[in-house]
Amino acid sequence: MMDMIETKRLRPDDLPEQEFLLPGNRSCAGCSMSLYYRMALKALGKKTIITVPASCLTVLHGLYHKTSVKMNVVHTTFETTAASASGIVAALEAKGLGDEITVCGFAGDGGTSDIGIQGLSGAAERNTNFIYACYDNEMYSNTGTQRSGQTPYMAYTTTTPHGKLEHKKNMPMIMHAHGIPYIATSCSSYPQDVYAKFKKAKLFTGTRYIHTLIPCPPGWGFPTDQSIEMGRLAVKSGIFPLFEIIDGKMFLSPESERCLDPSKRLKVEEYLKLQGRFKHIQPEHIEYYQEYVDNHWNFINQFL
């Protein structure tokens, strides 16, 4: 299977020109979600029905009666992305269109790992034929940057004024435990990789899960032009590993391969010090954070 679906390394101009996201939308300047969504939609193509819960993406989609997205979209409540997708899939199957139209749910990190995890787990257990895409800006950005289950250790949010004391919930591995056919992590800073992983996900039947880190300039506290670099640093430091789990086997993505060697991992401090949300962090926190990331790579190593 791997050989069959191996996609070549794409160059920027290999990406299709057709856009499903329209300019003049409501996202913030430098929004990584916009870039990520643009790539994901290119990969999914026209024959797709999307479902979106309350989130930043609702804002991007725009206010009634116009939308900045040229694709069929079913807005749903905060916790019901996967249930909504299940309904769309069932209806399409009943109409004999189950193989023809792709169903994809796009939810934020809170909508996925907090309020939406029950419905997602249920849909994955049923191996519902859809792609679940979590775009992770590590906080409830749309409601004003509160703490989520995906907020990392020590990050300031409006509800963790002294920094969060717990680590990020490991959603991809939770999804791995469901035994679904395709799981991937990606980051908006690697648009070709986002595109390729969505393309690849389309080749599978059943529940597919793609978890994407999308640095948020206002939420994280960095200049808008640094959106891309911030994601790169998250990957290069090993804080956010890029991988795929295909039929239960994990494959590190090339961007993360160098992190296997601890000496080639960028120090977490290089990533943390550029962001306002870690401004208050103390040396002992950094040390602990580094240890956590190193341990996490030992954990990942078990699956390779």
């Binding site: 300019p23 206010l63 116009k66």
Partner: peptide, 14 residues
């Protein structure tokens, strides 16, 4: 029902 249609510049001239 609130059904939106695609339009460039949904948020105006951003």
């Amino acid at each position: 029902a609130a059904v939106q249609v695609p339009s460039e510049g949904e948020a105006g001239k951003t």
